[in-house]
Design a protein around this nucleic acid. Structure first.
Lengths: 104, 104
DNA sequence: TTGTTAATTAACGTAAGTGATAATTAAGTA
DNA sequence: TACTTAATTATCACTTACGTTAATTAACAA
């Protein structure tokens, strides 16, 4: 069974999407560096857990710090889902198919 | 403000993702044709509402029937979100950028 | 050892999501 | 006018999601 619904659900929260976008833009960051002003650390911690369990991020331990980064496969899976329906885009996206394969 | 979290949240449910996938693969379908065995019609109806309010599908009325179809922009927005981080894919997806623009 | 920093887990309250059955609306059809 | 079909809205029950404060774990520093 596909875990795409789980992936989408995890990204279906503004705080978590912002976390993922920062990690994609800036690379590996600690929980503290990702801390949002609008939410408390415990709440952030549970958002990280949701992202981990959805297979979107991985955690690396460095002393007291927890360093997070995005798993490329997760974002790639979304890209491929969009591509599966490329006929919908007037068949103009076939080039992406090869591009995604190259990235593997 | 972006409505991407709303889009992802709407697709973060297996029943709704299945609805969207059928509409993408088969085109416009009625609520009845989309009816899943595992859920009751009222539940399906509310799933349609979530998808409508997220801007993912549009409803067209034909007598007693409600015909649904996917809004291309919604899927396109997801594709563009993935592309925004194409550096993450080793910069190999630049061709998709043009492809998505062509589809507009 | 004691204190500080970083992050998580525990416990709790409240809001939102999801499902069911029953009732309602609206449009055909006999 | 009934009757049937298609779908939605109303109501209710239950679960999950999300946020808070307090407590705990783990690692480093004085």
């Amino acid at each position: 069974m596909s875990q795409l619904p789980t992936t989408f659900a995890a990204l279906g929260n503004a705080t978590r999407l912002a976390i993922v976008e920062r990690l994609l833009a800036e690379g590996e960051l600690s929980a503290g560096a990702l801390q949002a002003d609008s939410v408390t650390p415990p709440a952030m911690s549970r958002h990280f857990k949701v992202l981990r369990e959805a297979g979107i991020v991985v955690q690396r331990v460095d002393a007291q710090r927890r360093l997070y980064s995005v798993k490329p496969e997760a974002v790639q899976a979304i890209g491929e889902w969009v591509l599966n329906f490329r006929e919908f885009w007037a068949g103009s996206l076939d080039r992406l198919d090869a591009a995604l394969k190259d990235a593997k």
